[in-house]
Design a protein around this nucleic acid. Structure first.
Lengths: 354, 354
DNA sequence: CATTGATATGAATCCTACG
DNA sequence: ACGTAGGATTCATATCAAT
């Protein structure tokens, strides 16, 4: 693993095994269709994308190309893998349509809202301040990875929205030659890839980038303990990527690498606590204030008004809501002190793992 | 004009004349697979590209439907009219693709970023906090209306971006029955339609809404002096719209209605100022400080270093930039006081109009 | 050293009314 | 329809120089 091939995307993709990739990030050409030159008032020329890799003869040709590489992506993705594709209004509606035709299932359309976009010099339309990322699974039934709590943590404790405000890649992050000229027209920011990779993959997962460019996907994969694989057909960029990767070190954010916010307690049936003699059928469970006591049955249920409920449904019943986490609600009395039953769940898990 | 028809969209559209509409706002349904029933439409849709795509095509009916009404919209739009379509990830990639196939030209994809979206209760994806509006002309060559300065004014003096942060429709604006239940699931906020209508139409323009719903398009059209026209197939909504419109009054923002920020001075050739004897060939023009004087030629050009330039190119030459507005730069001396030549342009225009 | 100011630049479908 | 002349138009950052 951790391979970078100086190779055309389609040629490379065909060499990858079926269902071997956990996550794909693809930044294909956008087919911008710009004409002439855009000149600022002071006379300087705006250097946009005029690269040969963005040249196509028609939508049809662009669609065929997109269809081919997206089909390959679908083949190599694991059953529960997922894919992100970034684009702009020129191409993303074609990409989205083709992906839906291929059976991909859209989880989110994430908006990259640029804090500092290129303004519209001529005042002819709204400043084009966004790009769109389609996050999809290969089919509607995929059990995809989503590190919900990690993203919530990064977002300051609130669940992360589908609109991401991130600056364009500039300053020291932007790769330049010794004359200060940008080395690639469309280098993507680290922050963007950080969110993509941390949200939808786990440590040691294999991340594929079919159009590497400056290799931000590989760089962020290395930073956060993922394996990377990708293709870039222009040799000058491949050398750039190698050089960039050599200077890349693992992130100091170990909690994010180890995914601690999204590690889930193993499920434990209540009966297991009885089998392990942590609690005894017939004893009483209490809420955190020592009130609302309920008796425990042989089968690990709670008795409320002569009816049996699971610890979860039972606590919900008392709270007058539909669902509740009983592990956080119930306590037992030990030496007259209330002890959360969740402590015993953890003990059971520790016993199993040892 | 100002008609609301209790009628199916397609049936209604067929009664509209060719090239008679200035602006369309469409909020089409996007029940795609399980929800609701789709209208059967005649004929078949050929979107080009690749027949093998049909293998997964559960979207066919939706595409047919979208194709039909979008084709009608293209027919009824004036040459220089434009259309907005709003959707979310379930349908907007189909809409965008079909529009491009039909030859529509995307001006912007505007993101409605919701300040207060419905949270994702299960924590299974990013909070879906955006909808997308595609703003398109019927062909790449259309000279569409864009009230750039009006939008810049609304946006506090900065050019408006393609990402709009607007709250969802709630509070007093949200239409409810006497039991407080919302009357429509997808009522669009006034602020959203205000931006759509003010940016891309002028006073007395005809605004069409093929899927009226709660009629926000008509309401905002009335508020800002546009004519409205639309279809809604459910009678209960039609009655709601009538009721809502009766309570709607013209906005107090007269400057926005009269479009004062985007009214342009009529073009005047410099020669006209000579013909009207406001200025005399041979006299000198000055910048606002009385420096940088240049002599005026017979043909209304300025002489700089023995070369003739238009007043615009000439002032730009002096400023060392590519282009400049000569009307704002040049002055003549009258009784030893500098007088902007732009004053004479205004006089010429007043003479023409009287 | 801190502050101010000048300069450079970024995935861009970037002009249009009149004759 | 088309060519031509008239004339309208930018924002957030980063860097570096100057005060």
């Amino acid at each position: 693993m951790d391979q970078i091939h100086n190779m055309d995307c389609l040629k490379g993709m065909r060499k990858i095994e079926n269902e071997s990739i956990d996550l794909i990030f693809a930044d294909p050409p956008y087919y911008m269709q710009t004409e002439g030159q855009l000149i600022r008032v002071e006379g300087s020329i705006y250097l946009g994308v005029n690269d040969t890799w963005d040249q196509f003869n028609s939508y049809n040709e662009y669609d065929q190309f997109s269809f081919e590489w997206l089909k390959q992506c679908q083949r190599v993705l694991k059953r529960n893998g997922s894919i992100w594709v970034i684009g702009s209004f020129q191409n993303i509606y074609r990409i989205g349509y083709i992906m839906q035709q291929l059976g991909y299932w859209i989880i989110n359309d994430v908006i990259w809202s640029k804090k500092n976009p290129t303004p519209n010099f001529m005042g002819t339309r709204f400043t084009n301040a966004n790009e769109i990322l389609l996050w999809c699974t290969k089919s509607p039934k995929s059990k995809y990875t989503f590190n919900y709590k990690t993203m919530k943590h990064i977002n300051g404790g609130k669940q992360m929205k589908s609109v991401w405000e991130i600056g364009i890649c500039s300053g020291k992050e932007r790769l330049r030659d010794d004359k200060g000229r940008k080395l690639h027209n469309t280098q993507k920011p680290i922050e963007l890839l950080k969110r993509v990779i941390l949200s939808s993959s786990r440590k040691n997962d294999v991340v594929l980038d079919p159009f590497m460019g400056t290799g931000t996907t590989a760089v962020v994969s290395k930073m956060y303990g993922r394996k990377y694989l990708g293709f870039e057909k222009e040799e000058k960029y491949v050398e750039l990527i190698y050089h960039r990767l050599r200077k890349t070190e693992e992130s100091i954010e170990k909690n994010l690498i180890e995914n601690v916010y999204d590690i889930k307690e193993k499920r434990v049936p209540m009966k297991r606590l009885i089998e392990n003699k942590f609690i005894v059928p017939g004893e009483f469970l209490f809420d955190k204030n020592g009130e609302n006591k309920s008796q425990l049955t042989q089968s690990g249920k709670v008795l409320i008004a002569h009816s049996e409920y699971s610890i979860h449904k039972g606590s919900a019943k008392i709270l007058g809501i539909v669902n509740n986490n009983g592990w956080d609600y119930w306590h037992v009395k030990r030496n007259d002190i209330l002890k959360p039953i969740n402590d015993y769940r953890k003990k059971v898990n520790e016993t199993k793992n040892s």
